[in-house]
């Protein structure tokens, strides 16, 4: 009898906590999203009127920021994949006894607060940094071109900040590949490229899927990079939700936007996992 109850007793405190502070808030957020301002009330006072039009209004008003969030997040995810894959491959197959050392190096930058590093990028790419004057002297960019407050800086910052979320799962799945499968492929007269396309890549797919999801989800909801490295023209949906909450005290719109963001991410992720599960993505 006691044996049957043990797992439930172990789960009870943790799941009680998650229910109260994760499920309940999400349900509450859903309720908030259809509220409207109390007539004649103070700012920040809302009542439930089940106004689903809130969603359409919120989306139409901010479709630009929505689009930007997803475009930036997708570009940052692809860049992170392009940078991380060779790195994870090199650590798994080419670094011999220094494997652990390089793995620590991948994670190490993230011990310095991520905000400090983002601000550091702002200053490195800024007017007083060393990159802009150098590029101007060589003539790669014109005197009026800046690097900060641009979409380039925001996407670069996101790529940088979420890189280990891509590298670590990639490493985990590439490291599990038996090197003999690669030799076998070579023995069967496949060249390097064919071996990569037909053996290495398919075997590392779980890592690619996990890495892209772990990068894409936080990137789509991020607003810190856009706030520090961007300009009003690079605002993402996260920036809108933040300012709706704190500056405008418009909780229903913020809630509707949060829900739309979550739904959009869930739909994209589901489609992606389905595709990645079959051969189509390879």
């Amino acid at each position: 009898m006691g044996k049957i109850r043990t797992p439930y007793l172990l789960l009870l405190p943790g799941f009680g906590f998650l229910f109260t502070f994760f499920i309940l808030p999400i349900v509450n957020l859903a309720q908030t999203s259809t509220q409207t301002p109390v007539g004649g009330g103070d700012t920040g006072q809302y009542e439930q009127t089940f106004r689903f039009q809130n969603y359409i209004d919120a989306f139409v008003e901010n479709k630009e920021q929505f689009g930007r969030s997803f475009v930036y997040a997708i570009i940052a995810t692809l860049l992170a994949l392009a940078i991380s894959y060779p790195l994870a491959y090199a650590i798994a197959f080419k670094s011999g006894k220094y494997k652990n050392f390089f793995l620590v190096l991948v994670v190490a930058p993230f011990f310095t607060s991520f905000l400090l590093r983002t601000v550091a990028w702002k200053q490195i790419l800024g007017e007083e940094g060393f990159v802009v004057p150098t590029l101007r002297t060589i003539g790669i960019i014109s005197d009026s071109t800046t690097l900060t407050s641009t979409a380039f800086a925001v996407v670069m910052g996101m790529t940088y900040n979420f890189l280990p979320f891509m590298t670590l799962p990639l490493y985990a799945s590439i490291d599990r590949i038996d090197p003999r499968t690669l030799e076998a492929s070579g023995d069967l007269y496949a060249n390097g490229f064919t071996t990569f396309r037909k053996v290495t890549l398919p075997l590392s797919m779980p890592g690619v899927v996990a890495g892209t999801l772990l990068t894409f989800i936080p990137a789509a909801g991020d607003y810190v990079n856009a706030a520090i490295l961007g300009s009003p023209n690079t605002k993402m949906i996260g920036n809108v939700i933040e300012s709706r909450y704190f500056k405008i005290v418009d909780y229903p719109t913020a809630a509707a936007l949060s829900f739309t963001l979550m739904a959009a991410i869930l739909i994209l992720v589901t489609i992606y996992i389905r595709k990645a599960g079959t051969e189509e993505l390879v």
Binding site: P25, L213, I217, P218, G238, E242, L261, M262
Partner: peptide, 11 residues
Amino acid sequence: ATPEIVLGASL
């Protein structure tokens, strides 16, 4: 799997 901003805002 939930974006941080949704976790923060809902709480």
